[in-house]
Computed example of a mutant assay.
Amino acid sequence: MIRLLYGSTKDSDVQYIVQQELHIPTFLIDRGDTKQLFLDSREYGVIADGNKDKTLELIKLEPFIEQARKVTAVSSTAALAEVLFTEFKLMDEEVVVGNALPLDVADHLRAKGATLLPTADLYPERQQKTAAELDFMRSAMVRTQKAFTYIEQVLRDSTIDGAKIMYQGNVLTSEFLKWEVQLLLLREGLSLDDGLVISSASQASMPHHSGEGELKANETIICDIFPRDRATGYWADMTRTYVKGTPSSEARQMYETVIAAQEAVFGVIKPGVTPDEIHAATLGTFEAAGYDFSQDWITHRTGHSIGLDIHEAPSIETGVDTPLKEGHVFTVEPGLYHPEYGGVRIEDIVVVTGHGYENLTNYEKTLVST
């Protein structure tokens, strides 16, 4: 199989192969036993110094750019692709390409006679993480947990004034905590490329509301933090739900049910289980507790796979029947939401092991912050 990649290491497949930070989008030809990465001279030296893959050949791009200037009426990227396909004898081969290849490039190559086989999954082996990848993810999770320790300390040090939470003489807001968390994680080598969630009260009843304004006393506060390790590219993802003050009976029941759903999921994780079966454990717990999702209650899938992308396949939800294997890493994040009672979500990351699972999120779960 011959694969063609295009992009910088913002593309997770390129990151998977190069394992270094590559800023300028470029082409990579992967023949399996050998790979050829075409580099702008501005990045060639840096990548060469850090390259540890003996099968990865680094080639300076400038001579091919000169040839591509002779190709007219198409984009410079399409022209360069034509030159590389010709020079490296790919026109007569079947070449597998991913979603990152620009459409105009694909159209031009096909017009020139190339056979391109599109796929959404260039490297299916990425789904099962190696020991080294798991170490990267454990490290990212340990550092992410420091953000939750900080949030909990702020809540403990805060006071309540009516519906407001007061911290160091000011009303505690979502924006304040988000800013402080971002600074903390940057110092830990983690970046919040896709944002984060710190929402309370009615905002917390909407699973993807990132949160804004004052955080409310005696209401649920969802903190969902998902940073990327700037050095390795691997993501962490963790959620905890808190109440500063006294939770309502409904909020406490929601919390206990979400914890029970997560435990039910943990009980079924093993090699061979399907995402559909995992999600059924979540839904079964919610239904047994009396939650009716035909009314105002909201829930969502149990989780998603994670690695060099924050959301990877397979998704942990109804209808996904791919048997999980040892090394699959995914989130377990059951949630319950209601416009009157707010929301509760608890999220850990787990990896399937030979006999069950390992929880990569070694952190306590406590609703009330006193």
Rank of each mutant, 00 (worst) to 15 (best):
K89Q: 09
P118H: 14
K60C: 11
T115G: 14
A100Q: 06
P102Y: 03
A81C: 04
V46A: 15
A81F: 02
V74Q: 02
L134A: 03
L37D: 05
E82F: 04
L39G: 07
F85T: 00
I59E: 00
I47P: 01
T119G: 03
L134Q: 06
R143M: 00
D104M: 02
P118F: 15
D49I: 05
T72Q: 14
R138E: 04
G98C: 13
E133C: 05
A132H: 13
E62V: 08
R42Y: 08
F64C: 09
T115A: 11
V95I: 09
F136M: 09
E43L: 06
L58F: 10
A106F: 12
Q67T: 08
A114I: 00
A100Y: 05
A140E: 02
G45L: 12
K129L: 15
R110Q: 11
A81V: 05
E87I: 09
I47N: 05
L117A: 06
D40K: 13
D104Y: 10
L116P: 08
R42C: 08
L84I: 09
R42V: 12
L134S: 02
V74N: 02
F88S: 04
A132C: 12
A68D: 03
V95H: 01
L80W: 04
K35D: 15
E94G: 02
L109W: 06
L90P: 00
D104N: 11
T115L: 01
F38K: 03
E62C: 14
V142D: 12
L37S: 10
I65H: 12
